[in-house]
């Protein structure tokens, strides 16, 4: 059997860190934000690009999941149309608490350039949104910065069960 010799008085000392429950829970939550692949339109391509080789989303702990039941954050990337609106509500309801929503791009924020009969004028008419990313389409850097801001927001919250579920109405 191998003998590991650890000098607890050197190299940063004991491998023990003291922290509070809130901090450690939020640390875990914020650094493993699994995102729902919700590429609706053009922004979905930039979302894919941010997950691909150059931008590499995995280093934030953000891994795209295909199922809402495994996802923490829904990145609404693209135009939400009135025909699709009911499905975004269904998928949002299927996600487990705590859950966050990033509205990516002008179309998801306000309807953007598609000021027409078929477009929902802002995804926040259907589900509550935590973060709005401007741009048409936002660059992958914007999305990654947005995720970092969301992590900051998560860290600022209490981690307990007493969190009020977000409801639009």
């Amino acid at each position: 059997m191998a003998q590991h010799k650890i000098n607890y008085t050197q190299d940063g000392g004991l491998p023990v860190a003291l922290t509070s429950i809130d901090k450690i829970v939020n640390w875990g939550r914020s650094n493993s934000l699994w995102a729902l692949t919700y590429g609706l339109a053009c922004c979905g391509i930039e979302m894919m690009a941010s997950g691909a080789s150059r931008f590499d989303f995995d280093r934030y702990g953000t891994i795209f999941r295909a199922s809402p039941r495994q996802a923490d954050v829904m990145i609404v990337a693209g135009t939400l149309t009135k025909k699709h609106a009911e499905f975004i509500k269904r998928l949002y309801d299927q996600m487990t608490e705590p859950r966050w929503v990033i509205s990516m791009g002008s179309c998801a924020n306000t309807g953007g350039m598609f000021n027409t009969y078929a477009t929902v004028q802002g995804v926040d008419r259907i589900i509550p949104v935590d973060l709005y990313l401007p741009g048409c389409a936002p660059r992958p850097e914007t999305l990654q910065y947005g995720v970092m801001l969301l992590q900051k927001k998560i860290r600022a919250n209490k981690a307990g069960n007493a969190q009020k579920p977000k409801r639009l109405m």
């Binding site: 009135k82 609106a85 509500k89 000021n115 027409t116 009969y117 078929a118 929902v120 259907i126 109405m169």
Partner: peptide
């Protein structure tokens, strides 16, 4: 929608379609 009598931004029904359906 492509009838000329249909406005670009939709009529009353279109404006509330998703709200009526979901909520």
């Amino acid at each position: 929608p492509l009838l000329k009598t249909y406005p670009l931004e939709g009529d009353e029904f279109a404006a509330w379609y998703e709200i009526d359906k979901i909520y």
